[in-house]
Amino acid sequence: QVALSRTQVCGILREELFQGDAFHQSDTHIFIIMGASGDLAKKKIYPTIWWLFRDGLLPENTFIVGYARSRLTVADIRKQSEPFFKATPEEKLKLEDFFARNSYVAGQYDDAASYQRLNSHMNALHLGSQANRLFYLALPPTVYEAVTKNIHESCMSQIGWNRIIVEKPFGRDLQSSDRLSNHISSLFREDQIYRIDHYLGKEMVQNLMVLRFANRIFGPIWNRDNIACVILTFKEPFGTEGRGGYFDEFGIIRDVMQNHLLQMLCLVAMEKPASTNSDDVRDEKVKVLKCISEVQANNVVLGQYVGNPDGEGEATKGYLDDPTVPRGSTTATFAAVVLYVENERWDGVPFILRCGKALNERKAEVRLQFHDVAGDIFHQQCKRNELVIRVQPNEAVYTKMMTKKPGMFFNPEESELDLTYGNRYKNVKLPDAYERLILDVFCGSQMHFVRSDELREAWRIFTPLLHQIELEKPKPIPYIYGSRGPTEADELMKRVGFQYEGTYKWVNPHKL
C-alpha cells in the first residue's frame, strides 16, 4: 500500500502544474464570482478556492472578487462561507491571508454602469489591468444573457486571457439551449467557454479513460460480442427537503440524466481518441451522441416518491408533501431510460440510465454486464461477469466473477477481482471535483468540460421526450421513500436483457 498525506498529494500536483506551459504561476489572475451571495458560491466555490489557495495550487498573485446585487462586505462573505471551509486552528494565518486577497463589488446584473465599476475595481488591483480574468457564473440561467453581454462589453482583460465558467442547466430543451449557446458564442470563442459538469471532475469518471485505453485486457472485450448491457446509475437517499420548488422546474431527467449520466455513457462508449488533447476527446464523445436516436417512450419509466409510513423524519414525507412543490405536480423524481448506440461496436446493446431521489442508498456507478459463458459445464450455477466502476461513495473498480467454492467439488461461487483505489492508495485525500475543474480552467484544459456541439446532441436525444411529458403530463409511478424505485423499472431492465441475480454482496474494501 502507498500512504500519501494531503501535503504529498498537493506537492505532486504542484510539480505537475508548474512543469506545464499552460499554468502561468507568476502571472496575476483575477477570479470573479458572479452571484457571490448565492448558495453555490457559499457552499462550493469559495470553499474550493480556499482549498486550492491553502494547498498552494493557485497562481501566487490571485485575487478573488465577488459580485452580486446584495450590498455585502468581505466580512459578510466570510461569515456565510467559512463554515464550509473546514479550516483547522493551525490554518488561521493562512485564512487571514486568503481573505486579504478577497474583495466585493455590489451591482445589478443588467446595468452597464455596475460592470464599469467592477472593471475599475479590477484595474485598481495590483497589475489588475493586465491580469488573466476568470469569470464564474454562479447564477440562474435567466440572467446569463445580460451578464455575459455586460462582461464582454465592460470587463474583459485587454492583455491577459479571459475565460468564463457556465453552470448547468444549459437551457431547458434543445431550442433554449441553442439560443443560449448562440448568444454566448457570439461574445466569446469556444476556447474561452467552460460549461461545467462537476461529474466530469470526479476521480473515477476520469479513471474510465485510463482503464479503457491503457489496459490491453479490456480492449478486445469492450464491444457487443461480449457486453450484454451497460447500466449507469445515480441514486440519492434523500428527497427534495424543502427545495422542491427549484427541482420541480427541471425534474430528474434535466437535473441528472441528460448531463451526468449521458457524459458517463460517452466515456464508456467512445472510441479511442487520437490523443488526450481536449478536442480529440470531445470529438469522440460527440460521435457517440450522434449514434444515439431520440428516446422512445416505451423505453422510459418515470416515478415519484411517496412517504414511507414506517419511516422516520423526512422519510415519512412524499414529494408532494414538500411545501415548495406545486400542488398535484407530476414532475418525476425517478427515471429509467434505455438508449442504444447504433454503431458497429455497440449495435443492440442497451445502455440503461437510472437516477432518482429518496432511494435506498447513495450511489453513482457504471456497471457493464457481460454475456453468459458459452457451453456451460457447471449446471447453470454460473452468474454473469460484471465490471463495476463505483464513482461514489467509496470509489472502487471491481470485476464480479466466478471462482471455485472451497471444498471437494467443482462448485462455482461469485467473488470479485478488486482493482480499488483504496487498497493501493491508503487514506489518500484526493482533490474534489470542483478543485480539479477550476484548476483545469486556470490551465486552459477543456477536456472535462462540455463543448457546444456535445451539448446540442445531448438535448436532441431528450427534448422530444421532455416535450411529450410536458404536454401529456403522465402521472409518475409512486414508489416508497427509501425503496429501490418503481418495480416497473426493474421490469424494463429485465425486458431489454439485464439479469439481476441478487445473490452477490459487494464487500467494501475500504472497511476491511
Rank of each mutant, 00 (worst) to 15 (best):
P350R: 00
N385S: 09
G485H: 01
R456H: 13
K287D: 08
H467Q: 12
A336V: 08
Y434G: 14
V337M: 12
W506I: 14
R345Y: 08
K400H: 15
H260N: 15
C291R: 12
Y479I: 01
D432I: 14
C382G: 12
R367D: 02
T503C: 12
V281E: 02
D376Q: 13
S445P: 05
R484L: 09
D322T: 12
K272S: 11
W459L: 13
P323M: 09
L368F: 08
L437M: 15
R436C: 14
R367T: 03
I477K: 12
D432A: 12
A374E: 13
L289T: 02
V391H: 15
L289I: 07
L466G: 03
K404G: 15
F498P: 14
M401W: 15
N423Y: 08
V450W: 15
R354D: 03
P273H: 00
E416R: 09
Y481K: 11
V337K: 00
A274S: 12
M401F: 11
N411A: 07
R327I: 10
M401S: 05
R345E: 07
V338F: 02
C443A: 09
F334I: 01
W346L: 01
Q468F: 08
L387Y: 04
F351K: 00
N508Q: 12
V391T: 14
I477A: 15
G311L: 11
V306N: 09
C443N: 09
C382K: 11
F378R: 02
R282K: 09
G444H: 04
S275T: 09
R384F: 08
G311H: 05
T316P: 14
Y425A: 15
N299G: 04
F498W: 10
K363C: 13
E435A: 14
N308L: 09
Q304G: 01
Y305W: 12
K429W: 09
Y305L: 00
P486Y: 01
E284F: 03
D283L: 06
H371M: 09
C355Q: 04
G422M: 06
T487Y: 10
E414F: 13
N427G: 14
K287E: 10
H448L: 15
G328W: 05
Y479C: 01
Y319T: 00
E271C: 05
V286K: 07
K473Y: 05
M493S: 11
N411E: 10
H260F: 15
V281F: 15
K426M: 12
A336P: 01
P474E: 11
M447C: 04
E491M: 11
W459I: 11
H448V: 14
E284K: 13
K475V: 13
L359S: 06
R495V: 07
Y500R: 14
Y398W: 08
L339T: 13
K426C: 14
V286W: 06
Q392N: 14
Y305Q: 01
K357T: 10
F498I: 15
P509M: 15
K287L: 04
E312N: 12
L265N: 01
H379E: 10
D372C: 05
P478F: 05
D432L: 11
G497S: 15
I469L: 06
A336I: 03
V268Q: 00
V295F: 04
H510M: 09
L353Q: 00
A336M: 06
E386N: 07
L471I: 07
R424K: 15
Y398N: 10
N308P: 03
S483L: 03
P478G: 12
L387M: 04
D432P: 14
V338G: 04
R390F: 03
H371V: 08
L455W: 05
Q380L: 12
E365K: 01
V496I: 11
Y479S: 02
L320V: 08
F370W: 09
G407W: 06
R345N: 11
R390T: 15
L267N: 13
S415R: 14
E395Q: 15
